[in-house]
Each structure stands twice: as C-alpha cells, then as structure tokens.
C-alpha cells in the first residue's frame, strides 16, 4: 500500500509528464488531464487490482475505461509509470507511427487500453458491457469508468445510465470529472448540467461526491465507492476537480482545456511540480 505522500509524489510526476507531452507536440488537452492526475494515480497505484502484463479480457482484474478520451495524456502517463509500457514511449505521444494516439485506441495495440474513445458519450455503454460480461463469467472484480462533465450532454450517456440501473450493474463505478468547464466555456454557460446528483439518483444510481484534487479524499472516496458495489445499483462519483490543477496559471478558466503551453509557460509550470521520479 502506498502512502498518501507517495501517491502525491507520483501525481506530481504524472503532471510533469502531461505538460511535457503536450508541449512537445504543441497539441493535446492538458487542462482535464491535470485535473484527473490524482484520480488516475489513486486508481492505479492504490485502488485497482490488475496486472500490468496486459490481457484484453482482463479476467479477474479490475478494469479502467476513459470515456472522455481527450485527456489521454494523464492515462498514458499513469499506464507507463504502472509498467504497462516503457516510460520513454511517452515521448511519442501524438507523433507519427506512435501507439500513443491523440485519443486512446486499441488499434495500435497499446497495453492498458480496451476500447477507443474520443467521440464523447460512448464509454459508459462499453464499461457496462464489460461489467455485464464479468457477471456472466462469475468474475467479481470492478469496472471503473471516467467521464467528463461536459460529456454528460451526450444523449447516449443517459441511455446507458437508464440501462445500467435497470440491469442492476452494481460492479460499475462511473466517475464524473466535475470541473464545470468545457471547451467553449463554463458548463453553466454552454449547456447547464443541472443537479447532477438528483439526475443520477433519478436514474437509479447510488451517487456520492468526492474531492478529486486531494489525494487523501480521493483514495478514501474511491474506497467508499468500492464498498458500495454489489448492492444492486451502479455507482456514480461526482468528483470535484479543478481544470489545470497543480499549475497556478492554468486553473480558474476553461482556456487550457485543449491548448499546449509554450516554452516559457512549460518552464513556469514545471517549476511548480517536483520531479519525484525521473522525467521521461
């Protein structure tokens, strides 16, 4: 078991990876990636039971899906630093002939990825399917899926939400990255999400809230969610985060959703994040 300090150290390195990856190709999505660095670190370094010797079927393992595929940098960094593929491969992100496509895909055979995502709103359905297959196979492990909050504007999410509760898919924990921002601005300005807790509850889910940029709260929140599995309802975590978390000038607005830092901004950002493991 990792200590909170160790997890925070790992998250700091993950944030450095994210910034260096998007800077190197002057593209990608740092804002949401930074906001979810603590979640992914907690999941892979503390919560999930898995083998880094990747097998697609993930039998008797916990599975992770990323529905908002544009925050691929955070997932790639955590997968690499969990041993799924060489850390040096992070330098190929978004470059020609890379397994680290702009959005995650199985197409290039990157270990750790089980389905393509990027076109929004599709991950929950896939995660439900994987969770139902686990039940059919007598596999008691848990399926995790992360969603953007803006992504909840997609209709398929609500088809899936209705379906999951109807079918009592209670080995599924869907987390919403509730940073209240999307590419065009605040979610409240673009298309209000309304009362998400009430909406998911009305759809038959067990809903909880979690602070996603506080490692201790994230770890305990994910453990609490795990304890809720097996009770006949899918679980939704509304995870409060800050887009750009960890880099002062990237927080407080939506403008770093999909913009890479320039040389000077990268230097400033990295100066705020300790290099706890070696940069790739």
């Amino acid at each position: 078991m990792a200590s909170i300090q160790e997890l925070e150290n790992t998250a700091s390195q993950v944030r450095r990876d994210i910034l260096r990856m998007v800077h190197a190709v002057n593209s990608g999505h740092p804002g949401g990636s930074l906001g979810c660095a603590d979640y992914f670190t907690a999941l892979y370094f503390e919560i999930m039971d898995y083998s880094a010797d990747f097998k697609m079927d993930g039998k008797n393992e916990d599975l992770c899906f990323l529905s908002n595929g544009h925050i691929s940098p955070v997932w790639y960094s955590v997968l690499a630093r969990s041993g799924f593929f060489p850390i040096t491969e992070l330098s190929t992100f978004r470059k020609i002939d890379s397994r680290l496509q702009g959005h995650p895909t199985t197409h290039e055979g990157l270990p750790g990825i089980r389905i393509a995502s990027g076109s929004l709103g599709q991950g929950m359905s896939a995660a439900i399917g994987a969770a139902m297959a686990k039940k059919m196979n007598g596999d008691t492990k848990t399926v995790y899926c992360l969603h953007g909050d803006g992504e909840l504007q997609e209709g398929q999410i609500w088809e899936a939400a209705m379906f999951a509760s109807h079918n009592k898919v209670d080995n599924l924990i869907c987390t919403v990255d509730y940073n209240k921002r999307q590419i065009d601005g605040d979610t409240d300005d673009v298309l209000s999400l309304g009362n998400l807790r009430a909406k998911f509850e009305a759809f038959g889910w067990d809903v909880m809230e979690m602070e996603g940029n506080n490692m201790e709260a994230t770890v305990s929140g994910l453990k609490e969610a795990k304890a809720k599995t097996g009770n006949g309802k899918p679980i939704c975590i509304l995870m409060t985060t800050e887009m750009g978390a960890g880099v002062d000038f990237m927080m407080g607005s939506h403008k770093w959703h999909g913009v890479a830092p320039n040389d000077e901004q990268l230097k400033d950002a990295l100066s705020q994040l300790t290099e706890t493991a070696e940069d790739y």
């Binding site: 697609m56 079927d57 993930g58 039998k59 599975l63 089980r114 389905i115 709103g121 599709q122 991950g123 929950m124 359905s125 896939a126 995660a127 439900i128 399917g129 994987a130 969770a131 139902m132 297959a133 686990k134 059919m136 196979n137 596999d139 209709g155 398929q156 088809e159 899936a160 209705m162 379906f163 109807h166």
Partner: peptide, 18 residues
C-alpha cells in the same frame, strides 16, 4: 430498450469479456 446507441456500446463492452 429503444436505445440503440447504448446497445452498440454495451455489445462492444461485452466482447472484452469474451
């Protein structure tokens, strides 16, 4: 149910478990 988009995604997910 009358939710074809979800059905396609659930089907895709089911293949992961064989």
């Amino acid at each position: 149910g009358i939710a074809e988009a979800n059905m396609m995604g659930v089907a895709a997910g089911l293949t992961i478990g064989g």
